[in-house]
Design a binder for these strands. Structure first.
Length: 586
RNA sequence: GACCCCGUAGCUCAGUCGGAUAGAGCAUCAGAUUCCUAAUCUGAGGGUCGCGUGUUCGAAUCACGCCGGGGUCACCA
């Protein structure tokens, strides 16, 4: 799939030959040998560091070792030129027939170009969002949601079997508070004056429909019932309503999870999975009763020095051992989360990814410790932290306060600027760097708005394909047909640069997937869009460089092939980011 | 106090498994263009990659130590 992979094999074969010839010791490691496209195009199409890596063990100067490797590579028919440069790089330049063949391949593979670059079919679990089901999603949740979803798309694209999962925190005191809040709304719905919602409960209007529904279903029946009886009923109703609302919000962003996993279900029901998990850890000698030192840097009046049940997470790199049971005897959140990850492992996942918000960064070490402890290192957990999003409106920060009820909901943002721009902007930054989101910027039609710039490139390509029929009505625009064009006619430097960028797509996607970094795709697409726009602009001054060139049908056909391939890759990349590619911007 | 993340051009940020002369957009400056195919285009200037030491053929990238900014810190979820 990756057109460069084959050449890497040839370099290694050349090294093998040198080992056979006794130039390089048999035991020399070939691990550090790379073959990559150099940043600077004047260094050829591919460069290998083989001579520099092996020079020391071979006891020869890098450049003279390169002299030995050079003839072994020069015989390749796909290679036009091999030269030694700098401290000992070997630069390869492809035969001129190479780039047309790459373009042809892109057209032939169409939508599957770049797909399956890793192709392990291995199961991967991506857990994301997992927001508390106590209210509507706000913008803070948005980034993690989009990030997790795009990462899942990316892993799916390169060939993993991805399961998208949402962990519902439906077990602790917060959902009891939710239930009490809903109960107030229930009484309100029955005509009672409830006044201000007390501190610690959820004041939002979004619970009013829940109260009304309870009133309609139960009448006054719950009023005379003790809390221990009505709480589970109200809680279940409120949870169901909140989850429906959250799923709806996520749907507006194009996000759909495969599994919603209930925290409560772990310890409620026939088996107590949390107890089983603790027993399993205990069997490994990782559970003990003990005391923890008080937390530093924060004065806590409620601190009590007590003996508690602890998990020895320090054996796996954590800073302090962690409690599993609260002072009221119920399980701590962490205990449930360990059981949840154990459950994922037992369902067969050897690779798990958790997407957390910045406020949960303190949980990374303990969670990794728990997974390492339970799986004997057989499973790998990667935790991606999404930093905060700062909202701006035309350069001015948007002030938000949850207490004052002025927080911006996810739905408001999506309704205002659209799901595509939201997704693209949320992904156009490394996940662990803070992000500024400006409502004005994402809808601006200019080059410094990457959303527009990339969409415009796709729309422009679509437009060219629409317009070509006016000049050459009989041209078959089907990709398979375009692939048979005389692509060797594409010789302009800017055209070759564009093909080169298209050729890099599979390895870019692969690298982004391996690193769990979907943002790389956004930057790639921006560059690809820039190449296409640049080519277009050259046609402004030089009519003979226009895509649709009236006096030369075959040349037009080759250029249309290039435009079609570019459009295809733009759409492919946007698809992974979860952004719908537009055919016109009007 | 501990841990995690960040520190790259005036600003916002990329930078592949450690690779050659560190890139992009904005802003600045200098030109071109008023039309064609769709929302201007071309070029230039601008850098102790926070500081230091180390690892090595080679460090923005890896290790350690500082400095600066942000986040988190028993039992909440």
């Amino acid at each position: 799939m990756d057109v460069f992979a084959g050449f890497h094999g040839r370099v290694l074969a050349a090294v093998q030959q040198l080992k056979h010839d006794g130039v390089v010791p048999i035991e020399a490691s070939i691990e550090g040998i790379t073959l990559e496209p150099p940043k600077d195009a004047s260094h050829g199409d591919l460069a290998t560091n083989a001579a520099m890596v092996l020079a020391k063990e071979a006891g020869v100067a890098p450049r003279s070792l390169a002299e030995r490797i050079l003839p072994l590579l020069a015989s390749d028919p796909h290679i036009d030129k091999v030269e030694i440069a700098g401290p000992g790089f070997i630069n390869l330049t492809h035969a001129s027939a190479f780039w047309p063949s790459v373009l042809r391949m892109v057209l032939e593979q169409g939508a599957s170009y770049g797909r399956g670059a890793i192709c392990k079919g291995e199961a991967v679990n991506v857990e994301y969002v997992s927001a508390n089901p106590t209210g509507p999603m706000h913008v803070g949740h948005c980034r993690g949601a989009v990030f997790g979803d795009a990462l899942a798309n990316l892993l799916d694209f390169v060939g993993f079997a991805v399961t998208r999962e949402y962990y519902i925190n439906d077990a602790g005191a917060q959902v009891d508070a939710l239930a009490r809040s809903a109960y107030l709304r229930y009484r309100e719905a029955l005509g009672e004056k409830i006044g201000a919602i007390p501190e610690g409960l959820y004041p939002g209007d979004y619970l009013k429909p829940v109260g009304e529904k309870l009133a309609a279903q139960h009448g006054k029946e719950l009023l005379a019932t003790p809390e221990s009886k009505w709480l589970p009923i109200v809680r279940a109703a409120a949870l169901q309503a909140m989850l429906a609302m959250i799923e709806d919000d996520l749907g507006a962003l194009g996000i759909r999870h495969d599994i919603f996993f209930s925290e409560r279900s772990l310890s409620e029901g026939p088996r107590d999975a949390v107890a089983e998990t603790i027993a399993e850890l205990e069997a490994r000698g990782l559970i003990y009763r003990g005391r923890l030192p008080p937390p530093k840097g924060k004065v806590d009046e409620d601190w009590e020095d007590r003996e508690q049940l602890l998990f020895r997470s320090t054996s796996f790199g954590d800073d302090v051992d962690r409690p599993l049971v609260k002072s009221d005897g119920t399980y701590a959140y962490f205990a449930g989360d360990i059981a949840y990850h154990r459950d994922k492992f037992r369902r067969g996942f050897r690779t798990m990814i958790d997407v957390f918000g910045a406020d949960h960064s303190g949980h990374v070490k303990r969670m990794k410790a728990a997974v390492a402890a339970l799986t004997d290192g057989e499973a790998e957990l990667d935790i991606k932290i999404c930093q905060l999003v700062r909202l701006f409106r035309a350069g001015e920060p948007v002030k938000m306060s949850k207490r004052a009820g002025t927080f911006v909901t996810l739905r408001e943002v999506v309704d205002e600027v659209g799901a595509g721009p939201v997704r693209f902007m949320m992904l156009y930054r490394k996940n662990d760097a803070p992000l500024d989101f400006d409502f004005a910027k994402v809808t601006e039609q200019s080059r410094d708005n990457p959303v527009f710039y990339v969409q415009y490139a796709h729309a422009r390509a679509s437009s060219v394909l629409r317009n070509v029929g006016e000049t050459f009505a009989d041209l078959d625009l089907e990709e398979g047909s375009l692939a048979t064009s005389d692509l060797g006619r594409l010789t302009d430097e800017a055209e070759i640069a564009l093909i080169r960028r298209l050729a890099h797509y599979p390895r870019l996607v692969e690298a982004a997937a391996v690193a769990h970094e979907p943002h790389r795709l956004g930057f790639y697409l921006y560059g690809l869009a820039g190449d296409l726009h640049g080519l277009w602009n050259r046609g402004k001054d030089l009519p003979q460089l226009r895509f649709i060139y009236e006096s030369d049908r075959e040349l037009t056909r080759a250029r249309i092939a290039l435009v079609a391939a570019t459009k295809r890759v733009l759409a492919s990349g946007l698809g992974i980011l979860g952004v719908h590619a537009m055919h016109e911007l009007r």
